[in-house]
């Protein structure tokens, strides 16, 4: 089992494997079908490669609406059932402000400033930050 591209079959959003972590980099705008396909791809990849973590890099994503927000939350929830932790990394300030205004704070989702910070976070102990513990997730 080596690192590299995994989801060549679907031709959609590439899912990369780096050690114990799946790295998914979302494009600037993806249509709903592609997002749902990705949700499925990640689930399958977790099982096939027995990884412990998933990093979704959204630093290139210009908008997150309630649909994509739901997909991200469901990816994380699904991964948790498969014993993998998910970190969403690199959300842009404008996107974060908009999501909050929309009423979508995604409390169950772990976040990091960058993909690098996310991998670091996954490498550490399961519960890292006091704020997370207080909210009772993780």
């Amino acid at each position: 089992m080596s690192d590299g591209f995994l989801s060549a079959g679907t031709g959609a959003v590439p899912v990369l494997k780096l050690g114990d972590v799946l790295l998914v980099t979302l494009p600037g705008d993806l249509h709903d079908g592609l997002a749902e396909q990705l949700q499925q791809d990640i689930g399958e990849a977790i099982v096939r490669h027995r990884v412990g973590g998933v990093v979704i890099d959204i630093s290139g994503v210009e908008i997150v609406d309630s649909f994509l927000g739901r997909v991200l939350a469901e990816i994380a929830a699904g991964a948790r059932l498969l014993a993998a932790r998910t970190v969403v990394a690199g959300m842009r300030p404008a996107v974060a402000l908009t999501l909050v205004e929309l009423g979508l704070t995604l409390p169950g989702l772990r976040t990091a400033l960058s993909a690098g910070a996310a991998v670091e976070l996954l490498g550490g102990p399961d519960v890292v930050r006091p704020a997370d513990r207080r909210r009772g997730d993780g």
């Binding site: 909050v100 205004e101 704070t105 960058s114 704020a131």
Partner: peptide
């Protein structure tokens, strides 16, 4: 509250 929530979404506290 909104600021705190937005900062958290970005991966900081």
């Amino acid at each position: 509250v909104k600021t705190v929530a937005a900062v958290r979404l970005m991966g900081a506290e």
